[in-house]
Design a protein around this nucleic acid. Sequence first.
DNA 1: AGGAAAATAGAACGTTTGTTCACTTTTTGT
DNA 2: ACAAAAAGTGAACAAACGTTCTATTTTCCT
Lengths: 237, 237
Amino acid sequence: MTFAQFSRAAALSRREIYRAIYAEHGPSIKVKKEKTALKNLELIFEATLKISNRKGFRAMTMRDLSQETGLSLGVLYHYFASKDELLDMVQRTGRSIAGRILREAAARENEPAARLRAVIQTHLFLSEAMQPWFYFSYMEVRHLGDPEKDRTKAAELWSEKLLADIISEGQAAGVFAPVDVSLLSAAIKAMLQDWYVKRGKYAKRGYTVDQYANFMVGLVERFCLVGSKQAAPRQGS
Amino acid sequence: MTFAQFSRAAALSRREIYRAIYAEHGPSIKVKKEKTALKNLELIFEATLKISNRKGFRAMTMRDLSQETGLSLGVLYHYFASKDELLDMVQRTGRSIAGRILREAAARENEPAARLRAVIQTHLFLSEAMQPWFYFSYMEVRHLGDPEKDRTKAAELWSEKLLADIISEGQAAGVFAPVDVSLLSAAIKAMLQDWYVKRGKYAKRGYTVDQYANFMVGLVERFCLVGSKQAAPRQGS
DNA sequence: AGGAAAATAGAACGTTTGTTCACTTTTTGT
DNA sequence: ACAAAAAGTGAACAAACGTTCTATTTTCCT
């Protein structure tokens, strides 16, 4: 699978995302007309990610947000009750989308090696398509209230366990070598996260997400695939 | 090398660290007697790392810092001119210590495979000994002013280039396979960072830094060492 | 076109923040 | 023991913040 194929397959249109937010947070949002609500929700979320990912959510002021969106302070508070609630909304939305797509990808394959490859690729493609969201979620966990913080950490552990289960299954089937499952899945997660946390670095060096995915899959398979081809791994692409 | 050996070898005594800070920031610090200066500097730095690493430097107030250190607001400002300068001081100190130790470790070995192993181990052991510092530096880059931010990023790229150069050298000597140098050194960095960013996760699972170091070295060597032993990698330790 | 409903604007308010400074307490040198 | 120097205190201040609210503009429906 390539990133281009993934983009076509995954239903990730912006319109739908904001429609889902509007539907879910209906009671909290004091705007009646869907058309203006969607337009402003997109403005607000986009600006929040842009400003926060530059200087941090805590350092972003409501006046920053007002200026960037072109909306007045009063209007902003028609979409959330407080700045903290805005933080929760961004967090929740990203998590629910990411969870859905990852679950679908893991269910599509059966054979352990293929499943492992699919989850790695899908995670990378997803974080590529939603980079600001992933970066935000990663950097702002500390500023969440306890309930939302717990949910975020649980989601991260869930995706790591998804990897661990696949590896364990492969070991039981004899296709993966008996490496330390917990450490290997943690290492895979670390590399997955690096793609969206250090996105700028990879862009500057001219790497595409497809190249990174190929490299990661090669690295992981060469480490734990039993009887992996001993030919030297290829460069980049 | 083990972490215990590293701890004994590296000169990392707290007294010396704060003496260096006091010596370097002499003109900015309005306290004449070295003894009280060192005592309070340690209180301030320790408290800054503790509070900031829980809720972020920006969210830490001077009153938080005053309460945690037991020093009054007025006294705090005898050690730095502003909150931003405190941020810079913490950042600079950690960077200079880390840079010195890494440089020494890289110079000690000659053969590429041994050097690579030494740099990985030293980086891990160092971040283990100074975990709060590393975590702080990683999470608060965004809140630095431009000059200090540039220096921090440069230091990170320097350590990545240190890895890349060792790998390139090993490839030229024929001991490393022709893998993508830039991607491999980036992946190594990602795993090194995961150790101190997710320190709590690994602690909860009962892993020591020595186990993590062995795993990482095994993973990397199995990926790029030409003619690496095909025996299945051992579990954990 | 005109009036009701929805959306928008931004001045104003109370809090919290970083920072200062006149003052008190402690330590030092003789 | 005592003055001078150093260290420490916390009330006070201005700026900046999140949030509210009334007044105004725009949109919608008939």
